Amino acid sequence: MTTSSHSTSVFESSVVDSDFIEGTLTNTSIAETKPQEGRTALKDCNIILFQESVLNGLTDGTTPSFNDLVCLADGKVVIVDNINSICCLYDSYFNLMSSCTMPTKPWNVCAIDTDEVAVTLPDNYKIQFLKIGDTIQPSGHITTRRMGMVIVALNKTELVYAGTMIDEKTYYWGTITRDGREKSCFHIPRGNITYQNVNIALNACKMLVYIACFDAETVFCFGLDGVQHFAYKVQEGPNPGKPMGIALDSEDNVYVVVRNMNSIHRLSPECQLQQIVKDMIPGNPRTICFKKSGDTFLVTSKNTKTANICYTYKLK
Rank of each mutant, 00 (worst) to 15 (best):
P103F: 11
L89P: 00
W107A: 06
L89S: 03
I86A: 03
F94N: 08
Y90V: 02
G75E: 11
L96S: 01
F94S: 07
A73Q: 15
M97I: 03
D74T: 14
G75F: 04
P106C: 11
I79N: 02
P106V: 05
L96D: 00
S65H: 13
N84A: 02
P103W: 12
P106W: 09
C100P: 01
V70S: 01
N84S: 08
N95E: 05
V77T: 11
N95T: 07
D74S: 07
C87R: 00
M97C: 13
F66N: 00
N82F: 15
L69W: 01
F94H: 08
C71N: 13
C71S: 13
S99E: 00
C87G: 00
T101M: 14
L96H: 10
V80I: 14
M97A: 01
M97D: 04
V80R: 01
L72K: 02
M97Y: 05
V70I: 15
L72R: 04
L72Y: 02
L96F: 01
P103S: 10
Y93F: 12
P106Q: 02
P106D: 07
N95M: 09
C87L: 04
L69I: 08
K105H: 12
P64A: 08
L72F: 03
N84V: 06
P106L: 09
V78G: 04
M102R: 01
T101E: 14
P64C: 11
A73F: 10
W107N: 07
N84T: 09
Y93E: 14
C71K: 03
D81G: 10
P64E: 04
P64V: 04
S65W: 10
D74N: 13
S65Q: 14
N82V: 14
V77R: 03
F94D: 05
V77F: 07
P64W: 00
D74F: 12
L89A: 10
F66R: 04
C87S: 06
C88E: 05
P64R: 06
T104W: 06
L72D: 05
K105D: 08
Y90I: 12
K76P: 06
D91E: 02
P64Q: 03
M97G: 00
S85T: 13
C71D: 06
C71H: 08
S65L: 12
T101W: 10
N82L: 12
S98C: 11
L96Q: 09
N82H: 12
D68N: 07
L69F: 04
D81S: 04
C100M: 14
S65V: 13
F66E: 01
P103I: 06
N82E: 12
C88R: 03
V70Q: 01
S99L: 11
F66M: 12
V77S: 12
D68A: 13
L96P: 01
S99R: 09
D81A: 13
D74I: 07
D81F: 07
